[in-house]
C-alpha cells in the first residue's frame, strides 16, 4: 500500500476561473522523503490541503495511508501530522503550553512520544517558558515540527517549512527530517528553494498546477538532454546580452557567478565554437566549461518546454 496517492486531482478557485491544481497524479511510498518543488502559486499548498482533508478537490481521487480523503477524512486526520505554510503557532502561549496543547488535542501526552521529538525538543527546551511569539524563525519552525510530530503520525506533511528561514536553520531542519525518516515516518515536504530538492529521495517539479516531472533528483539531473556550459567573462552583463543575440545559443541564463548556456548544435565542437564566438565579441577573461546541471536548470528547461519555446527569457 502506498502512503499517499493522487489520481487526476484537479482543483479550481473562484468558480473555476483560477486553475490551481491541474490533473495531478502521484504516488508516494511508505517511509519516503518526498519533495514537492515549485514556486509560489504552483499549486503545492492546494495539494497539501487536499491530502490533509481540509480542502475538497473538484475532480479526481486521493488517499493517505490507504484512506480516502473524502470518505475517511476522520481516519486520516488521526494519522497525519501537518505543518501548514503560514503556521505560526499560538504566539501568546509558551513553548511548553503550545506543545502540551497540541499533545492533548491529538489525545496523547508529551511524555508518551517524547522519544520521537527528543532530538528537536532538546534544542528549544532552554526556552520552554518563552512565548512562541518571542522565538526566532528557526526556533519557531522547530517548535512547529514538534507540535506536528507529537502524536506520532504515519505521514508528515510539511508545507514550505523553510520559507523565510536563514540558510543555517534550513540546513539543520533538513538534517532533522533525515533523522525522522529513519524512524519510518513518510514525509511529504514542499519548498520553493530548488537547492533543497537534492535533499529529498524523490521529487515532483510543479509549475502552474501541473507536475512536470517526478523522479529522484539524481535521475532528473542525469536526464538533462543536452550539454550545459558554464560561461564567464570580464563583463557578465554584456556577455549575457551578446549570447542571447547569438546564433549559436539556444538558451542563456545567469546563475550566480556564471552563465548557464545551452547550444543549438550539440556536437563535440560546441565548447570551442562558443569560446571563439565570445572572444570575437571582444570579451576578456573568458571561461567556458561543461558543467553538471542543477535541479534548477532542469526546472527551467521543463518550464520552457511546457510553454513550447526555448525563448531566451
Amino acid at each position: 500500500m502506498k502512503a499517499v496517492t493522487l489520481k487526476n486531482i484537479t482543483k479550481t478557485y473562484d468558480k473555476g476561473k483560477v486553475l490551481a491544481v491541474d490533473d495531478v497524479t502521484l504516488q508516494i511510498d511508505r517511509g519516503e522523503l518526498f519533495g514537492l518543488i515549485g514556486p509560489d502559486g504552483a499549486g503545492k499548498t492546494s495539494v497539501f490541503r487536499i491530502l490533509t482533508t481540509v480542502l475538497l478537490a473538484d475532480k479526481g481521487s486521493a488517499s493517505v495511508d490507504g484512506f480516502d480523503v473524502v470518505k475517511d477524512y476522520q481516519s486520516i486526520r488521526r494519522r497525519i501530522g501537518y505543518m501548514p505554510g503560514k503556521f505560526s503557532l499560538y504566539q501568546d502561549l509558551t513553548v511548553k503550553e503550545n506543545l502540551g496543547f497540541f499533545a492533548t488535542l491529538f489525545g496523547t501526552t508529551i511524555e508518551e512520544n517524547y522519544a520521537l521529538i527528543k532530538d528537536i525538543y532538546e534544542q528549544i527546551e532552554p526556552f520552554k517558558n518563552r512565548r512562541a511569539g518571542k522565538l526566532s524563525g528557526g526556533m519557531k519552525q522547530k517548535l512547529a515540527l514538534c507540535c506536528a510530530l507529537i502524536h506520532k503520525p504515519e505521514v508528515l506533511f510539511l508545507d514550505e517549512p523553510t520559507t523565510g528561514v536563514d540558510a543555517v536553520s534550513r540546513r539543520e531542519f533538513w538534517e532533522m527530517l533525515k533523522r525522522l525518516k529513519q524512524q519510518g515516518i513518510t514525509i511529504l515536504v514542499s519548498t520553493p528553494y530548488m537547492d533543497e530538492a537534492v535533499l529529498c529521495e524523490r521529487i515532483a517539479l510543479m509549475q502552474n498546477g501541473k507536475i512536470m516531472s517526478v523522479n529522484t533528483p539524481q535521475h532528473i539531473i542525469a536526464t538533462y538532454p543536452v550539454p550545459l556550459y558554464a560561461v564567464k567573462s570580464g563583463n557578465i552583463y554584456k556577455l549575457l546580452n551578446d549570447l542571447r543575440k547569438s546564433e549559436l545559443v539556444e538558451s542563456s541564463f545567469a546563475f550566480g557567478e556564471y552563465l548557464h548556456v545551452t547550444l543549438k548544435n550539440n556536437d563535440a565542437a560546441g565548447a570551442g565554437n562558443l569560446r571563439n564566438h565570445i572572444a570575437a565579441q571582444g570579451h576578456t577573461n573568458i571561461e567556458v566549461s561543461v558543467m553538471a546541471p542543477t535541479i534548477e536548470d532542469s526546472f527551467i528547461r521543463l518550464t520552457n518546454k511546457k510553454q513550447g519555446s526555448f525563448a531566451q527569457a
Binding site: 514556486p39 509560489d40 520559507t163 520553493p192 545567469a254 534548477e296 526546472f299 527551467i300 518550464t303
Partner: peptide
C-alpha cells in the same frame, strides 16, 4: 525574490 519561480528569478536578476 522570495518564492518566485526560477525563470522569473533569472529575469529579475537580468
Amino acid at each position: 525574490t522570495g518564492g518566485v519561480d526560477p525563470v522569473t528569478r533569472r529575469q529579475f536578476w537580468d
